[in-house]
């Protein structure tokens, strides 16, 4: 187990390094922040002074190694747009909002998707299965930003039961969390359905029924525990999606999280902040997947990682 963990940690560090190269290169390819941030009538000389001040006049490889050297020390540079702010500080400031919304979206997705998925499997070809298929189809087909705007219009403008946007109490989270988690409901539900169907055919389920174990217990305890392995793996993907999806959802709902920060930073070509946001997303994604892999072993007794593996 320890060896496996060590292997995964090293693998994660290599992944982070690769991501740093990609994000550094892509952000430079998008153009020079001086062009986005300086006023229209700034003269070339002024642009040159600013570029020198920001270190953008140095060769790319020098900029990259300086970036890595500072990043290792926890310094991702200063924001070009938000004067006086560090890039990482900006991300830390906004991260709680995204985690709050993302966490709530995951809870909502899970609460809806798992029961429907199990029921669709138990009642294969029946009402729930058809309902599940419809949910899956809509979930996969409806773009989150469109769903977000529709939710705002229906529940905030016409019915006035939820606030349209912004961060505040619990009521502010409901619509953005649904919009963010809707796509995941579909995927998670289908995954739960197929893995439950597979498990329901197993001998131990038949044995449990023959022994007179109540049906609800057979399904929700015995079957679901094994059927949950595939959806559990998928949670790693969900967390990644929640972060990338936050970019759109936070813009629609004016939710002041890292997604909105990313949009603002990209518009301004604020390299340090864009890099900080993406690296933070990557770290969270990698850690989440690591945790999922570890949980894997606990959920399924057949799966054990040991030093011989």
């Amino acid at each position: 187990m320890q060896r496996y963990l060590l292997y995964r940690v090293v693998q994660s560090l290599v992944t982070l390094l690769a991501i740093s190269v990609i994000i550094f290169g892509l952000s430079r390819l998008s153009g020079n922040p001086v062009d986005a941030l300086l006023p229209d009538n700034a003269a070339p000389q002024e642009a040159a002074v600013v570029m020198h001040e920001w270190g953008l006049d140095r060769p790319l490889h020098v900029q990259y190694f300086a970036f890595i050297r500072n990043a290792v020390q926890g310094n991702l540079g200063n924001s070009l747009k938000w004067s006086g702010e560090t890039a990482l500080g900006m991300v830390w400031q906004r991260l709680p909002a995204t985690l709050q919304l993302g966490g709530f979206a995951i809870i909502i997705s899970t609460l809806i998707a798992i029961p429907i998925g199990v029921l669709a499997a138990v009642h294969k070809g029946g009402l729930f299965d058809s309902f599940g298929k419809m949910v899956a189809l809509l979930g996969q087909a409806v773009p989150p930003f469109w769903l977000g705007i529709v939710l705002i219009w229906v529940f905030a403008v016409y019915w006035n039961v939820f606030p349209t946007s912004g961060r505040g109490g619990f009521e502010h989270m409901v619509m953005p969390a649904i919009a963010m988690g809707w796509y995941q409901v579909a995927a998670l539900m289908r995954l739960t359905r197929s893995s439950t169907l597979e498990v329901l055919d197993n001998e131990y389920i038949k044995l449990a029924r023959l022994k007179g174990v109540p049906e609800w217990r057979v399904i929700w305890v015995h079957a679901l525990r094994n059927a949950a392995i595939a959806p559990l793996t998928y949670f790693g993907v969900i967390i990644g999606y929640i972060f990338t999806g936050s970019v759109v959802i936070e813009t629609v709902f004016a939710w002041p999280g890292t997604g909105l920060l990313a949009i603002e930073a990209i518009r301004a070509r604020d390299y340090p902040v864009v890099q900080a946001v993406v690296l933070t997303f990557a770290v969270v994604f990698i850690i989440a997947n690591l945790i999922v892999d570890i949980l894997y072993a606990f959920v399924d007794p057949r799966i054990r990682y040991n030093d011989n593996e």
């Binding site: 705007i149 905030a156 403008v157 006035n160 349209t164 946007s165 629609v252 709902f253 004016a254």
Partner: peptide, 11 residues
Amino acid sequence: ATKLAMLLAGE
């Protein structure tokens, strides 16, 4: 669209 919704919702 969010700004318009805020206006129409009275926020």
